[in-house]
Design a binder for these strands. Sequence first.
DNA 1: GTCTATATCCTGATAGAC
DNA 2: GTCTATCAGGATATAGAC
Lengths: 212, 212
Amino acid sequence: MIKSLGQKEDHILQIAMQVFLEKGWHGTRMQEIADRAGINKAMLHYYFRSKERLYTTILEKLFIRFMNSLADSFKPGQDFATTLRTFLDRFHDHLLQNPNLPLFIVRELSEGGKIVKRVVEQVVNQQGLRTPQMMINEFKHAQKRGEIIPIEEPVQFLLTVIGACVYFFLAKPILNPVFPEIDFDSPQFIEQRKKLIFEHLYLGIKNREKNP
Amino acid sequence: MIKSLGQKEDHILQIAMQVFLEKGWHGTRMQEIADRAGINKAMLHYYFRSKERLYTTILEKLFIRFMNSLADSFKPGQDFATTLRTFLDRFHDHLLQNPNLPLFIVRELSEGGKIVKRVVEQVVNQQGLRTPQMMINEFKHAQKRGEIIPIEEPVQFLLTVIGACVYFFLAKPILNPVFPEIDFDSPQFIEQRKKLIFEHLYLGIKNREKNP
DNA sequence: GTCTATATCCTGATAGAC
DNA sequence: GTCTATCAGGATATAGAC
């Protein structure tokens, strides 16, 4: 499925990616992609048969790119604290550069997610979708080394970490009316977020000195 | 805005809510609502002027209902551990009974979220949207009492908690291909999830005995 | 490969008779 | 209040000339 594309196809794909990320599936008009790419609708259909094919191609690219950018977090011989910090760092930085990616993926899911499911299954089958499994493995090793306490189900922890990262980007549009005193777009907030997710999840919030 | 509705209006509203939750704004057809409600499109427009009015009404109902179901978690004189546990419990139970709610809201956001934003702002202005603020207050009190350690920014913790809760329901459709060995639909998994979110966030995962 | 013009379909909304 | 028939607009996709 991953074939090298001509220059022009690639250019269109970049444009289309931007539009889809901004407007989503339904919000995106083939006309707008054509306009922004400096061609017309007919050409768009000439290169990519249909809107769905175009969308699927883009989804696949975005997903794999994201997974790869996370995969760097895992380095052998690294303690789990560092791995977790790096993971949080990468995750937030990637989403900062692709702010609409979470909404984009989730919307797909909400519409039945047929395309996303197909892409995920395909990616899983192709490259084994190593990223989540790598995280789980790191987790088990850290447990054996005694760095962290035993956990019933590592997947639960992973879900919590990812949720903590993703939710902020999903909810950002409605956070301002709820907490008007906070500037959610400031780099400081994001840096604080990386730090505090780590601290809360790794160290907990309980005061162990006063309440043993 | 919240007025008592006739029997028929209410029935239509129930049906429309189901359809919107399933299909989202763009996916929903007025025709389908009419069909399922046993009336025709003209009547639908007769009762509710437009698709947008119908949608807004429903969104408002869903949002307020959810907030109220969470508000019960906060009881004066309760320690923060109990408050957090209750909150996690209520949150998961509500989403179990309304599995499409997270995807529904997020999809709205992903499509520009103009209506969601308006509804949130309206609800905030009307009843002050106490729920998030109550959580923040509980947090500050627990800090003063010494139950938990000082936190730079309580909102960050709240975002992490909510993210940990919501993400699971959002991602469920793609979790199976990634972790085929786990049954994400079992009640046990949800109960485990409530418990472990609490433990990880409240107590942390670091082994303090071996790594002081 | 490129473009114009158009086919085809679908949807929200309404007019108007009963 | 209820229904049928229809309008008006917008979207994807393609036919066909160059």
